[in-house]
Design a protein around this nucleic acid. Structure first.
Length: 818
RNA sequence: GCCGGGGUGGCGGAACUGGUAGACGCGCUGGAUUCAAAAUCCAGUUUCUUCGGAAGUGUCGGUUCGAUUCCGACCCUCGGUACCA
């Protein structure tokens, strides 16, 4: 054993051993319990950032711990390789996206290996290869046949100067990020997946996910947004057409004083032809961002269309307004407005002088003052004709029945969730496998012709996707009739690739089918780890895909991820590390200076995984200092030669104490690594043990034997977190096998037993004394001992004792008067 | 705007089921070692204090023998918001 801790040597040696012994190769083996641990794969942006280091270390610690539990662990790694940054880099550096991406992958793979992450690299995949994306093309054509995909027009952000579609993040304050032109909305035909057909399952199956954080399930449930309400039809004046609206508050129907439609609603567009003011408003709305956030925070504006609608029960005429807060692609593109009982409608009515009619009265003592705000609580109906006096709840049924009889409405379950638009007008993505024939319409590419390969030798200059101007790509014969036809030149949303990669990792080499029996062996993923920012979209799409694949017979079970851990972000100076803020810390430099084990130890120690992690150079040094201390202490111990066997029955009180601390630490670390995933407290427990061990200077034979035990346990307990140094320590302590193959130690219960325990004595809830009592003492004798304590006496002397509360193993609280 | 988190010493954090607030680490202070420094080791470190204690976990209020933990209202901050991944 070397005198000094030299991480560069140690880490290179151990990593070489793992590679040569094929340690992390995962082979299906029914004799062992399987454990599939997956951390969200990275976008190959160029270099690893601290968020990656944290994410992948968490996964590796869990994987190594489970391996030490004797499980057959699968931990794969791959690349979420399609996406916008490759196109941006291509424009900037004049490199094709493919070359840029593959270079990045090669560099980042090396960085991951240097961190000592135990991946089965045989299973590596990159989503930008035809071997991968051909299978999602295949699935899409299957879904086409099943009617689960369809085409409709939808709005995109359009920059009229660059002549290109912009992502939401490329729109800054309503303007193009590159040329600062005001962005316009443009309606173009796009492919959609019917995720709403699975809305109910996606909601109900959340109940199966006991291993998911409650907050993530809540966010998903709210996102899906199931509601029960009524669809109500309003007849239009001078027209056969009618206007349908959906409401969850039919009890307020009698208070409707106007209707609002989206500016681009056909009704509004038609009215605008003869109304210049409305036309100006429609044009103005066209220059709005498409994001929900922008819509909701924008000032609420509207213009009367001049069209009147007939109230389905009273027959009264109410005006129809065009409003910027009504979304065309959402529900029916129209809403009924009840200013007295909805705050947004109230503010709109105040602004434009529309009528406010109260139809709900408070049932309890809630305040209702319609001169200041809407009354949005439920209550008792008033001013509602035949429904007067009913409760909000009772009126739901009564009004539903009335409307059904009049054929003017029906009950409906509605979801906030919208169908998934998967078309992107970009180059660097999976080509959508559809051919548009002038006679046959949209025709899926036949299986034999898959994959539709994305040409990689292209020039990207920011003026639109290069494949849109490549006849050799898009000119094809219709697979059905042979006529001249055109390929889709749009590509898939990159969430498409990341929605099923977890399954493909089980059989990435299969060239015959999307998945095989190995998927059924390994799935579901036992532990999934990734950023909280993916709580809704990615995780919902992956759950959706799992159900689609299940219905194709490709996988078993309803859900892909049994347990989920959502990690927090890595911050510096309180803000997220990012290139634009210039506050990034390069993991490469960190590893070169201190080694992978220090990088791993610091990221696990600085905060629990679910919280954000504040970067600190000084704390990194502290982590390195601890490893140095551990190394030197072990070295000094080993240097004095081998130890005799431990004689448990023949130890001094101090040594018994020390052994108890060893097994208390082991108890805590086992729970923290296996159940709680609080690696910071596990490390703290090991540090505490080390402090106790270094304080003990018993150099007798038994003293050295206990020290040997403590150091062995420390090497094992830290092995999942800092695997390189622990391998070297374990060997130095006299073992021949690699620590990665050692089983997690058992707890020696006999070492944990204590004769006396310390209890605290409170008087009126304040700490006043500490007493030692026999571990098996009964409540009465504990109480008596507490009352007799001289410190406690000072605070109870001469006062009336009202109550004494004894919490076994913890405390005694003496409640006195005055 | 809406949905979901978070707020505890100078700093990162601990307190797991309502029971000793501040484990562990960083920083700082003092000491040892050194010609000197670095490194290392030892001791101390919430604030105030009349040295008895008192106050204290974003703010205000409540429940309880006892609240960082439960309930209500509010403030600040972070993530998501459907074309960033």
């Amino acid at each position: 054993m070397q005198q000094e801790y030299n991480p560069a040597d140690i880490e290179a040696n151990v990593q070489q051993y793992w590679q040569q012994a094929d340690t992390f190769r995962a082979v299906e083996d029914n004799s062992k319990e399987k454990y599939y641990c997956l951390a969200m794969f990275p976008y190959p942006s160029g270099q690893l950032h601290m968020g990656h280091v944290r994410n992948y270390t968490i996964g590796d610690v869990i994987s190594r711990y489970q391996r030490m539990q004797g499980k057959n662990v699968l931990q794969p790694m791959g690349w979420d390789a399609f996406g916008l940054p490759a196109e941006n880099a291509a424009i900037k550096n004049k490199v094709p996206p493919a070359a840029w991406t593959y270079d990045n992958i090669d560099y980042m793979r090396g960085q991951l290996q240097r961190l000592g992450l135990g991946y089965d690299w045989e299973r590596e995949l990159a989503t930008c290869t035809p071997e991968y994306y051909r299978w999602e093309q295949w699935l899409f054509t299957r879904l086409f046949e099943k009617g689960l995909v369809y085409k409709k027009t939808a709005a995109v952000n359009w920059c009229p100067v660059d002549n290109t579609v912009l992502a939401n993040e490329q729109v800054i304050d309503g303007c193009c990020w590159r040329c600062d032109t005001v962005v316009e909305k443009r309606e173009i035909p796009q492919w959609f997946m019917k995720i709403t057909d699975y809305a109910e399952q996606l909601l109900d199956d959340l109940d199966q996910l006991d291993g998911w954080p409650e907050q993530v399930k809540t966010m998903q449930a709210n996102w899906i947004g199931r509601s029960e309400g009524l669809q109500i039809e309003f007849d239009l004046e001078n027209s056969d057409a009618n206007l349908a609206v959906y409401t969850t508050r039919p009890d307020t129907l009698m208070g409707v004083t106007y209707l609002a439609v989206a500016a681009e609603h056909p009704l509004s567009l038609k009215a605008a032809e003869s109304n210049p003011e409305l036309q100006a408003f429609v044009d103005q709305c066209r220059k709005m961002e498409t994001s929900e956030e922008a819509m909701e925070t924008a000032e609420k504006k509207g213009v009367a269309t001049g069209v009147m609608a007939t109230h389905p029960i009273t027959g009264e005429q109410v005006p129809v307004w065009a409003a910027n807060f009504v979304l065309m692609g959402y529900g029916t593109g129209a809403v009924m407005s009840v200013p007295a009982h909805d705050q947004r409608d109230y503010e709109f009515a105040q602004k434009y002088g529309l009528a406010i009619k109260q139809v709900i009265a408070p049932a309890g003592k809630e305040s209702c003052d319609l001169s200041t705000a809407a009354f949005t609580e439920k209550g008792q109906l008033t001013n509602s004709g035949q429904f007067d006096g009913l409760s909000s709840q009772a009126s739901f049924d009564a009004i539903a029945k009335e409307l059904e009889q009049r054929n003017k409405g029906e009950r409906q379950v509605n979801y906030r969730l919208r169908d998934w638009g998967v078309s992107r007008q970009r180059y660097w993505g999976t080509p959508i496998p559809i051919i548009n024939c002038p006679d046959c319409g949209a025709v899926p590419v036949p299986e034999a012709d898959l994959p539709v390969r994305l040409p990689e030798d292209v020039i990207v200059d920011g003026s639109g996707s290069p494949i849109k101007s490549m006849p050799e790509f898009y000119q094809v014969a219709c697979p059905k009739c042979g006529a001249d036809a055109e390929r889709e030149t749009d590509t898939f949303d990159t969430f498409f690739e990341s929605s099923w990669y977890y399954a493909r990792f089980t059989c990435p080499d299969n060239t015959e089918s999307m998945l095989d029996e190995r998927a059924k062996h390994w799935l579901p993923v036992d532990q999934y780890i990734g950023g909280i920012e993916h709580a809704v979209l990615h995780l919902l799409y992956a759950r959706f895909f799992h159900k689609l694949m299940r219905d194709e017979g490709l996988v078993d079970g309803d859900e892909p991820f049994k347990n989920l851990l959502t990690q927090g972000m890595v911050l510096k100076d309180g803000v997220k590390m990012s290139k634009s803020k210039g506050n990034t810390v390069d993991p490469q430099a960190l590893i070169e200076q201190y080694g992978a084990d220090t990088a791993r130890l610091f990221t696990m120690f600085a905060a629990p995984p679910e919280q954000s992690l504040e970067w600190s150079d000084k704390a990194v040094e502290g982590s390195n200092r601890f490893l140095n201390r551990l190394w030197r202490f072990t070295q000094a111990h080993v240097e004095k030669g081998s130890c005799v066997a431990l004689d448990k029955g023949n130890l001094s009180d101090d040594l018994k104490d020390l052994r108890r601390q060893i097994y208390q630490a082991l108890t805590k670390v086992s729970d923290d690594l296996g159940r709680r995933h609080t690696f910071n407290t596990a490390i703290a427990a090991v540090m505490e043990l080390m402090n106790a061990v270094t304080k003990n200077s018993d150099d007798t034979e038994q003293g050295r034997a206990v020290r040997q035990e403590a150091l062995e346990m420390t090497a094992l307990m830290l092995a999942p977190i800092t695997p390189h140094i622990c391998d070297a320590l374990w060997r130095a302590l006299g073992h021949d096998e690699a620590v990665v193959n050692v089983r997690w130690p058992d707890i020696d219960e006999s070492a944990l037993k204590q004769d006396k325990v310390e209890l605290i004595v409170q008087v009126n809830g304040k700490l006043r004394a500490k007493i030692k009592v026999n571990a098996d003492a009964d409540k009465d004798s504990i109480e008596a001992q507490a009352l007799a304590d001289e410190h406690a006496q000072k605070f109870i002397d001469g006062k009336e004792i009202r109550k004494v509360i004894v919490v076994p193993g913890r405390l005694i609280n003496i409640v006195v008067a005055g």
